[in-house]
Design a protein around this nucleic acid. Structure first.
Length: 594
RNA sequence: GGGGGUGUAGCUCAGUUGGUUAGAGCGAUCGCCUGUCACGCGAUAGGUCGAGGGUUCGAGUCCCUUCACUCCCGCCA
């Protein structure tokens, strides 16, 4: 028998009554009755109630043990009387009477309680992450994460994919996010970059003939954090397949995600077959390329209404003449909502930096009328036309805003979320997946007016490759797709461009000449010239998948050792200063801060 | 880089219109308690009210500056 334990803390049952056992674990909780002491002993597996009374010589020292001390106890399993059974824990029908105990790991006074549902400041949780991780919810989240990853690995293997590792020290790439850089000692003045994703490597794996690749891949991007975005590093289920079309990738991902979400969550999937929404449709109907489809509200363009003579809402009419659009959200049967609801949305929109949201409710007495502060500007005919256009009925309300398309999309998208949450329209018990497809290959930079890759420079343009109009790049669509679940972007992927000449052509539109492409993407562009298979893939974010499954709103709740918002590890004190020798070896000098 | 929120005991928080000695629960320490499972009861210790400056007879409270954490915008092929 192992000297630390004969059983774990979740193993003993009624059938063990009478057994002599050894248990080890943390003191989760003590209940001291003076002459009788209960100790909840906890390990990874569960909790066992241990008990000792004054007759035992160990009583007084055990009584003084600090919570979270690691102890080993020897004792006997005894039955609990029916009134004292604890149904909350698996071992609740028995308890262990302690004969002997030994301290295995002493514990100082705790900076934060472990046994508590209480929420704590992030700072203290991250500094004492090893204590935080002992707490039930997050401990279970991390275990869930492990199980999800292992399940995914297994599924991928079953789907015929093999896992390959790719380098962590690689080269900086000019597109995309800011790189994390690592100075090279052997090559003074030169830097490695940590991969933002193994993008080029996985394509090279396809060129190397491996056909189906996957990896639970660490990715590093030096961008600012958000609740659903760790600073620094995150993990993707990176996958790539040869000789495939877009639909083949979709099929694999739908199988994988459906199986994973069905296995690890009780929430229902809203769609068995994930709907496909084009990028342009998504922006029009949801104002966003990551729509939450649990939300039934749809945005509609009603600009034409403001070009009518019998509409006298002059502020909007004037804006429309100068190129702005008007878009609206209709809410069903909201005529009895209090004025404060409508004004609340308007005020909220103003707080978001928009010029507010106009609104009215469709009413009918003798004729159709618009009730609300701006209702008087609309004729009956114009209201009928509006109802036809939007599907609104008497009793419904309409919220609308006017602005340039980009700003309008932004404000209507958040208004859509805001209104739905005010009206409680979102079913929190479901997952709504969708594909966003047909991304444009390029977009115009709002400030510099330069043409840039809108997503991934390695994507394959759509259509007959011989007929692509490179003179009109903003109209080129790509075989580029995202998968979205409940408004969270889970991943993006593409069918890749495996034709070097086409690649040079596309890069030249984005302002890179041949020699720049050759030097920046040397590995890949070179490889594509030696017989590259058509290929494509995708890379769902593991952290976000686990976040959805664990029903958490913050990615740090599913990350074992996360950094804070300023990309500092408060437990390990990273980043830290390095000594002069290290700097010297790396040929670096630090500019003194002002 | 910008905007919002928060910062008071080891932890979670309360603190009125600016007014005497800044409070509670948990935790810690000590005492009482043989059936609890958030055990109970009593006592004690524990405070640079994030920091600095200002207004005032008087500041946890008002003003300015600044720092930390967090949420959002920018950024994230």
């Amino acid at each position: 028998m192992n000297k630390y334990r004969s059983h774990n803390c979740n193993q003993l049952r009624k059938k063990n009554v009478g057994d002599k056992v050894i248990l080890s674990g943390w003191i989760n909780k003590k209940r001291d009755h003076g002459n009788l002491l209960f100790i909840d002993l906890r390990d990874n597996y569960g909790i066992t109630q241990c008990i000792i009374d004054k007759e035992n010589s160990n009583f007084s020292s055990l009584e003084k043990m600090q919570l979270e001390t690691v102890i080993k106890i020897e004792g006997k399993v005894v039955d609990r009387s029916s009134e004292t059974i604890n149904k909350e824990i698996d071992t609740g029908e028995i308890e262990v009477t302690i004969n002997k105990f030994e301290v295995l790991g002493a514990c100082k006074e705790l900076p934060m309680p472990v046994f508590s549902e209480q929420e704590y400041a992030e700072e203290i949780r991250l500094k004492y992450r090893f204590l935080d991780l002992r707490r039930k919810k997050i401990h279970e989240n991390i275990i869930l994460r492990s199980k999800v990853i292992s399940f995914i690995r297994n599924e991928m293997n079953n789907l015929g994919f093999l896992e390959y590792q790719t380098p962590i020290l690689t080269s900086s790439s000019p597109e995309g996010a800011r790189d994390f850089l690592v100075p090279s000692r052997l090559n003074p003045g030169k830097f490695y970059a940590l991969p933002q994703a193994p993008q080029q490597f996985k394509q090279l794996i396809m060129v190397s003939g491996f056909d189906k690749y996957f990896q639970i891949a660490p990715c590093f991007r030096d961008e600012d954090a958000r609740a659903d975005r760790s600073p620094g590093e995150f993990y993707q289920l990176d996958l790539e397949m040869s000789f495939v079309e877009q639909e083949d990738v979709f099929k694999v991902v739908e199988i994988l995600l459906t199986n994973t979400f069905k296995k690890f969550s009780k929430k229902k999937l809203m769609f068995d077959k994930f709907p496909k929404i084009s990028y342009s449709d998504a922006l029009l109907k949801y104002g966003s390329d990551k729509p939450d489809l649990r939300n039934p509200l749809i945005i509609r363009d009603i600009t034409e209404i403001f070009e009518r003579k019998d509409v006298s809402f002059e502020i909007f009419k004037k804006l429309v003449k100068s190129g702005s659009r008007v878009r609206c959200i209709v809410t069903k049967n909201t005529k009895n909502k209090p004025r404060s609801f409508f004004d609340g949305i308007d005020k909220w929109a103003k707080d978001q930096g928009a010029s507010g949201m106009a609104y009215f409710t469709f009413e009918k007495d003798n004729e159709i009328a618009a009730k609300g502060p701006v209702g008087k500007f609309f004729s009956e005919d114009s209201l009928k036309e509006l109802m036809k256009k939007t599907g609104a009925e008497v009793g419904d309300s309409i919220f609308f805003a006017c602005n340039k398309v980009k700003e309008l999309e932004k404000i209507t998208a958040s208004a859509r979320d805001k209104i739905a949450s005010e009206l409680d329209l979102i079913d929190d018990n479901s997952f709504a997946f969708c594909w966003i497809v047909d991304y444009p290959m390029f977009e115009e930079n709002q400030i510099s007016k330069k043409i840039e890759f809108s997503h991934n420079p390695f994507s394959m343009p759509q259509g007959d490759l011989k007929k692509i109009d490179f003179k009109d790049p903003l109209n080129i669509l790509a075989y580029q797709y995202d998968i979205v679940c409940n408004g969270i972007e889970l991943s993006s992927g593409a069918i890749r461009n495996h034709i070097p000449e086409l690649m040079y052509e596309l890069f030249s539109i984005a302002g890179y000449d041949k020699s720049q492409v050759d030097s920046k993407f040397s590995g890949m562009i070179n490889a594509l010239s030696y017989g590259a298979p058509p290929h494509g893939g995708i890379a769902p974010g593991i952290d976000r998948i686990v976040m959805l499954l664990a029903n958490e709103k913050n990615i740090r709740e599913v990350t074992m050792f996360p950094m804070n918002q300023n990309a500092q590890d408060l437990m390990m004190n990273a980043p830290s200063e390095i000594n002069d020798n290290q700097l010297k070896e790396l040929n670096l000098t630090i500019k003194s801060k002002k």
